[in-house]
Every structure is written in structure tokens, then in C-alpha cells.
Amino acid sequence: MDLKEFYFQNIKESEYHYRFRNSIDNVNKTFNVFVGYEETENYEFEVYDAEEAITKFRELCQPDVNFSGENKCWFYLITYYLHTLGYEIREFPRILARPPVEPTDFTYGDIRNRIIAQGGDDNGTVRYATRRSFVAGLTFEQKSCHIEVGDSINQKFIEISTRQASFNSMSTDEKLAEIANLIENMLKRDGKFVTPDYSKVCCGFITDSVVKDYRKKMQCFRHCSDEAIGERKTYSEEQKNFFVDYGLTIVKAIHSLLQKR
């Protein structure tokens, strides 16, 4: 997962993390008074999944970290990525949603103050070892309202994903694209679409025409044309979350029916 690419593909001007856009965009550039910004660095911001992003976040919170342009960018990108996936830190519920412009306000100030408030200081001094232990104990929780994805279906998402991503590590738009891809993947046999008997499990709530309409509506999430991107923007986050849950319901129904064939 390229976190920088993830950021630019998903960030909206209305979002809090949009304020970091210029810093992220120019992280590999140096300003020259004569020619403007020049590409002088080759920093990459890759993580395998959310678990690796959490590990990197803990590393950034260590007491001896220097927040250069690169590490600042890591901080901005990881907080955005984890927030987009629905994560919160139990001890600091708002930090991923609203990280400070200066990361040390959190990694030094907030963490130090919390340790002192809990009586973990030594006459006002917070030892490095104490801070490391505190950071290691931070609790990351995913606040997801989506329908749970079982292991067998999650494996199917991993198999069709171009980056072998698990479902819960995807952004909302990516989830919708991959749900549409998975529905097509499951229904297409030997180049032809099969039609499961939805009435066996869906009690009339899901039919072949409903599935076709859903797939048609989700096409804008599968393509990157200006028209498709514009169509995505017409949907609110609440609508997208509904599409995710509804799509997962369709996926589960198809998965169940095809297993019985």
C-alpha cells in the first residue's frame, strides 16, 4: 500500500487532513528561489497493511524520533490512512482524526502529559523507557459499522485485489470497487454469467435485477475517468457505507448459493 497514493486518491477538500496536502505533495522536493520546487529526494511511504501502519505509528511516537519532512509526512499519512479505515486509539480517541500540524505536540507533549497524569513520572521527569512502554501499550480499535466479512470471503477479496489487500485494509471507494469486482468474479463461469436462485435465501429482497442494478451503480468506483470520479463525488459517506453493507449482503448471498450448487 502506497500511503501517499492512497491519500491523493481519497482526500477531499472538506476533510481535516486536507490541510497537510501541500506538505505531502512536496515532501520529496526542495524549494529553490530561482527555479521553485525541485525533486531532490526519493522518500517512499509503503506499508503492507493496517497492522504495519500501526507498527510504524508506534515507531514515530518513540522519544528519540526527529520529525524531519519525511517523518512528518509519515505521521500525516498514517493518521489519515488509519482514520479512513475507521481506527481510533483508545487512550487518545481524536488523534487519528485530528492530528496536530506539529507531530511532537502529540508524540512528546500529549504522551508526556498523560504519563504524568497517571503518575508515571519521576519527580516531573518522564524516562524514555516509560514513554516506550506507554507507546507499546496504546490500544488501536477499529470502529467499523460494516457487516463482518468472514475468512473465506475475505480471502476472495485478497485474491482479486491488485495489491492482495484484505477487505478491512481498503478505503471505502476501494471496497466498493472490489465488491463489484468480486460479484462479477463469482457470477462469471466459463465466460458466461450464471444466475443463482436468490429466492432460496433472500426471500425476495435480492433478485437478479437488483444485483444487476447494484453492479451498474458501482461501475463508477471501478473506473478512473473524470466522469466516473465525478459520479463518485455525488454520493455522501453515509450512502457509500450503505452501498458497502448492501454489497456485502449480496456477496454473502451469492457465496452461499454457489456453494450449494
Rank of each mutant, 00 (worst) to 15 (best):
F6P: 02
Q9F: 14
I11S: 04
E13L: 09
E15A: 10
H17P: 08
N26I: 06
N28H: 00
K29L: 10
N32R: 08
V35Q: 11
G36R: 09
N42A: 15
E51W: 10
K56P: 08
F67I: 07
F75C: 03
Y76M: 04
Y76F: 13
Y76S: 04
I78G: 09
Y80C: 01
Y81T: 05
Y81W: 02
T84D: 15
I89Y: 07
I89M: 10
F92Q: 02
R94P: 03
P100Y: 06
P103T: 05
F106L: 04
G119F: 01
G120C: 04
N123L: 12
R131G: 00
V135T: 05
G137H: 13
K143Y: 10
K143W: 00
K143G: 10
C145F: 10
C145N: 15
C145V: 15
H146C: 06
S152P: 05
I153K: 10
T172D: 10
D173E: 15
N181G: 06
R189A: 11
D190H: 11
D190Q: 12
S199P: 06
C202A: 07
C203Q: 14
G204Y: 04
V211K: 09
D213F: 12
E227S: 02
E227M: 11
I229M: 14
E238F: 03
N241H: 13
T249Q: 10
I254F: 01
